[in-house]
Design a protein around this nucleic acid. Structure first.
Length: 172
DNA sequence: TAAGTGATCTCT
DNA sequence: GAGATCACTTAA
């Protein structure tokens, strides 16, 4: 039978923190390779000073203002591609940064290991793209999801830098 | 702890 | 066009 139960627009078209909780433990699939998502960071709208879109809609951030379920991929520090998935309704810029999957820890290492680069920017998460998500077979117990402040966003000021928007799947 | 690296954004 | 910034990683 065909396995096409991938997560799509309706799953991602919700508040980013809700999506984050449900996406932890789900699978990231890249050209047949399947990895459990273990670490995410949420970036929630124009008022979130750590979110790129807090500085407004530009050429680079425009994808976050678009439809949910589309990838936002950008280059950081001149060498590392960051893989994000857009969430929430069109017009509200929010996304989840995928920081870890399988036994890969670190957003730059993840994209390098999976061969993800800027060509995936603005593409929907879909089997046709070769990069998409499927739900976990069994949803991880909430006790196994831990939240902490996000990494590397001290420039956003104490309020936003301390928000518990980093989601981790703890070993169970 | 520091440096490598290049796109993007904000000034001129 | 110039300069600052940056959701990282690795080697010490």
């Amino acid at each position: 039978m065909t396995m096409s139960n991938h997560l799509e627009h309706s799953f991602f078209n919700r508040p980013v923190l809700e999506v984050a909780e449900d996406l932890i433990g789900a699978r990231l699939i890249k050209d047949g390779r399947e990895l459990t998502i273990t670490e995410l960071e949420a970036y929630d709208g124009p008022s979130d000073l750590a979110c790129h879109a807090s500085k407004g809609c530009t050429e680079r951030t425009r994808v976050m203002y678009g439809a949910a379920g589309v990838f936002y991929v950008y280059l950081c520090y001149g060498m590392y591609w960051m893989l994000n998935i857009v969430t929430g309704p069109a017009g509200y810029p929010a996304a989840l940064l995928i920081r870890g999957a399988g036994d890969i820890s670190g957003p730059g290492k993840l994209t390098k290991a999976l061969g993800i680069d800027g060509s995936y920017n603005n593409r929907p998460a879909d089997p046709k793209t070769g990069l998409y998500f499927t739900p976990p077979e069994t949803r991880p117990h909430k006790k196994l999801i831990q939240t902490t402040p996000r990494i590397g966003v001290s420039y956003a000021g104490p309020v936003w830098a301390n928000k518990p928007y980093r989601y981790l799947l703890t070993a169970g």
